[in-house]
Amino acid sequence: MDNTSLSHFVQVTINGLSMGCVYALVAVGYGMVYGILNMINFAHGEIYMFGAYIAYSALVCKMGLFSSILLSLFFCGVLGVTVERLAYKPLREASRIAPALTAMAVALLIRSAVMIIWGSSPIMFPQVINNKPIILNNNIRFYPLQFSIIFVTIVIWVFSLWLFKYTKIGKAIRAVSQDRNTAWLMGIDADKIVSIVYLYGSILAAIAGFLIANYYILLFPLMGFLGTIRAWTAAVLGGIGKLSGAVIGGLLIGLVESFAMTYISTAYKDVIIFIVLIIILLVMPRGLLKGRGQKV
């Protein structure tokens, strides 16, 4: 490899890791929700999209950066918990397909609401974070935003690992994910725990939405659906129910996407991601970190 192609390679890696971090954040929340209720939450990506739009409006209304983020987290948290209570909770004992279908309907509902409020054509996200690239030697550009994305993801990853492993609430979340009825018999309010998981997952989605909006500086209603697909792929790739699996799965997809776009073709990047998914699942049917051995 000569020098330019090497720096090109590094550049593509950095870009891929940044995107991958965003996918990882969406996938962690998605995986948690999947783990606790065993349901495919088609609406998860919509919450991520919704968060980005809320941040957009807050910034356009000249709210500060920090308060805009908080507002977006708040709205997404409320939306996630409300959706769970109103749409999913009544179906707790129903067959697996019912909540999945309901989630699809919820996704459509959120997407339509966003289209009504903000319109269906793409809108520019206000550039509020100073993102002047730092040019390293060999012409590699490293954007401060990429650094923030990677940093935030690592912090959230480590925090989540700690939360699940060592805190009382984290242990209760794992107990409820494994056996909800037995958890109730321990005096754990499983409904409350499920709500907490939705809250946490929605907040992570909102953070991811905010980061991606700043990264692409572009919002469009279908980004929620794309987010769900990426999160699903990442969670399955990494191993369903594994926190670190979702992170690794997200990073891998970001990298594959970035490399496919640069070295193969932008048009085929999704096909390539799915080919990688299929190959990995053929070799490791339960994903990279050996998640739950059950149907996805």
Binding site: K168, K171, M186, G187, I188
Partner: peptide
């Protein structure tokens, strides 16, 4: 140990 802690959850 975590199982026992869950028993003592309340």
């Amino acid at each position: 140990k975590e199982n026992l802690e869950m028993g003592a959850y309340i």
